[in-house]
Design a protein around this nucleic acid. Structure first.
Lengths: 249, 249
DNA sequence: TTTTCAAAGTGTATATTTTACACTAAGTTT
DNA sequence: AAACTTAGTGTAAAATATACACTTTGAAAA
């Protein structure tokens, strides 16, 4: 359901943008929306942007990020974590972006500072549905992301660095996988995100030793080879303060 | 020199706040300013705040942080790093803070999102000088910081976590020390900031093995015991991407 | 000048962790 | 039944982390 607030409830100085990462078993994906330019411009690659919009004047930042994500993509109830604020004076200065701002913003020339948010999801748990100014919503392969609108490539670069750091120090890989998964999916995920070729046996030993995984009695089905045992993630307290001692790889 | 821009150049929705950490050889310090309440309130502990203020409409965020720091404390030319955005709806809602906002802000009731910045300095390199709305500027012992104005305790907590993480993974301890320093000062610094009692010999071996320190032919002077050899920090490339491999302790 | 004090400076043995490395097992398809 | 594909498993060597205490040196006090 879209919000039906009015223009004068908008904070014209502050927006939020969301980087939602997903993993399909092979590559890392990012959720992008294609702006509806209503024929004011040819559709080109650069009309892809991160889901985001201005906040309301009485709206918490994180609530705004959730609301915008829901309004544009249909994704609800996501745990979002802040990346940081992006406020360059020229972040809205590209010609194509100006065309779009003129079209949809009450004060298109307003200087806007955006707060970036970031989430990890299991793609299969979410069905995306374009709405609002989003003509299409897609899971774009991270390595094939071209030039995005505004400063969104910059925000995305900041997000991937954060993701990599998190992967090393916190048990977050599981968030990108289904509840039950074979260890090799986790292994592929690490290699993909970290651009590495970790030693498989050493990886499996170490990831099991963390104590965050529990083997189940379920096995893969429908695969044309020996089915692997499925594991699940064990929720247990994670002392963020001891980050440095905890190398997940 | 203070900026002489006018009220209508102010962005009433966005401010910056700076957490400047220093180290005096014994304890970690934070730069705080005491607001000048001009007798509208008794002076109490809670009138201490982080140096910060609204940004100008055409001002880069980091430039704003530098400018505000200079205007309030006289500290110039500091490398500032962003902590994040703080935007709770009630962050300006304390009674004492409202009194102050009424006194100094053109639109005191405006909802303001602040961007936190963070810096590490060698206290001795900077002379502080209160100006602007700062009645006093002090280096407060980190462990003795009481209730600050606004959400500044929250910003400070976020900053100390960032500092601890940086200390583990990046060569930043040196920024808090003079150019030439004895190894025990570095050792004390780590123990102080990390609340730990590291093994001294192991610490010295490890910190030297990083290759970021170079011994000099200078020694401490004026100490009532055997003077220690002074070391200096060697600038060399630090691959932020390899953070996880680099444990400084 | 001798003694005392305070911090500087230094090494080793043991435990733990990391790394490199390759074959057999099991289920599916042909 | 053979071929294919991924699952699943152990060990030895190297590197790193840890625990631990005495001697040296200069300044200050007696």
């Amino acid at each position: 359901m879209e919000s039906n607030r009015k223009t004068n409830n908008i904070n014209h100085s502050v927006s939020v943008d969301c980087v939602v990462f997903g993993f399909d078993g092979f590559s890392l994906k990012v959720l992008l929306v294609q702006r509806d330019l209503r024929d004011n411009l040819d559709n080109g690659d650069d009309t892809l942007v991160l889901p985001g919009d201005l906040i309301y004047i009485d709206e918490d930042l994180e609530d705004a990020a959730s609301r915008v994500l829901l309004d544009l993509t249909g994704i609800d109830n996501l745990f979002l974590e802040q990346i940081g604020a992006f406020g360059s004076l020229n972040r809205l200065a590209k010609d194509r972006d100006k065309v779009w701002l003129d079209l949809v913003r009450p004060i298109p020339e307003s200087r806007v500072i955006t707060i970036g948010y970031f989430a990890l999801v299991n793609i299969k748990n979410y069905t995306i549905r374009p709405a609002g100014f989003a003509k299409h919503v897609i899971w774009e392969d991270f390595n094939e992301v071209g030039e995005l609108g505004f400063d969104h490539n910059h925000i995305l670069r900041t997000a991937i660095i954060k993701l990599r750091n998190k992967l090393y120090h916190e048990p977050v890989g599981f968030k990108l996988l289904p509840k039950y998964f074979p260890l090799n999916h986790l292994y592929t995920l690490y290699n993909t995100i970290l651009n590495s070729k970790l030693d498989r046996r050493n990886f499996l030993r170490r990831i099991l030793k963390t104590g965050f995984l529990k083997e189940t009695d379920n096995f893969q089905e429908g695969v044309p080879h020996k089915p692997a045992r499925l594991y699940k993630f064990i929720e247990k307290e994670f002392e963020n303060d001891n980050n440095h001692k905890f190398k997940f790889y």
